[in-house]
Computed example of a mutant assay.
Amino acid sequence: MKYVWRIPDLYRGFAEREARHRSPVYAEISARIAEDEGMLAFLGELPKTKWQPNLFLGAVQYLCGPARDWPWFRARFAERSDDIRAVMLARSTQTNEPARCATLLPALAALPQPLALLEVGASAGLCLLPDRYGYDYGRVRIPGPLVLPCRANAATPLPSRVPDVVWRAGLDLNPLDAASADDRAWLEALIWPGEEERLPRLRAALEIARQERPGIHRGDLRVDLPALAAQAPAGATLVVFHTAVLAYVRDKAERQAFGESVREMGAVWLANENPAAIPGVTLRGEGDFVLARDGGPLAWTDPHGTWVNWL
Rank of each mutant, 00 (worst) to 15 (best):
L108P: 00
I216Y: 00
L117F: 11
K50G: 07
A99K: 05
L291W: 00
A204F: 05
A110C: 06
P53C: 06
F56M: 15
A181V: 11
P193H: 06
P114R: 05
P112G: 07
G219S: 08
E264G: 11
G13Q: 07
D164G: 04
D302P: 04
I29V: 14
R22N: 14
Y62D: 08
Y248I: 03
A230D: 12
A244M: 02
F14Q: 00
S30Y: 06
R201D: 09
E260V: 13
R161F: 10
L190I: 03
G38V: 07
E254R: 14
I191T: 02
Q211A: 15
R213Q: 15
L187R: 00
V60M: 11
A257L: 09
R161G: 15
D136F: 09
R198N: 07
V166S: 05
E16C: 10
Y137R: 04
H242V: 04
L129I: 04
D36C: 11
N153I: 09
A185H: 10
L128G: 00
L171M: 08
A181E: 15
A292W: 00
A41I: 12
R284V: 12
E28L: 11
A19N: 04
L238E: 01
G13D: 10
A152M: 02
P53S: 08
A59H: 05
P275K: 04
D164P: 01
L117S: 03
R139V: 13
R218K: 13
F73S: 01
A205W: 01
P106K: 08
R161L: 09
A247R: 13
W5I: 13
L105D: 00
I142W: 04
A276I: 08
R263E: 13
G259T: 01
S92M: 13
Q256I: 12
W72G: 03
L148C: 06
E119H: 10
R20L: 15
L105C: 02
K50F: 08
L171V: 07
R100D: 03
L187D: 00
V281M: 01
D288Y: 14
D136Y: 09
M88R: 02
Q256L: 15
F289A: 13
G305P: 02
G266Q: 06
R85P: 05
C127N: 12
E286H: 12
K50W: 07
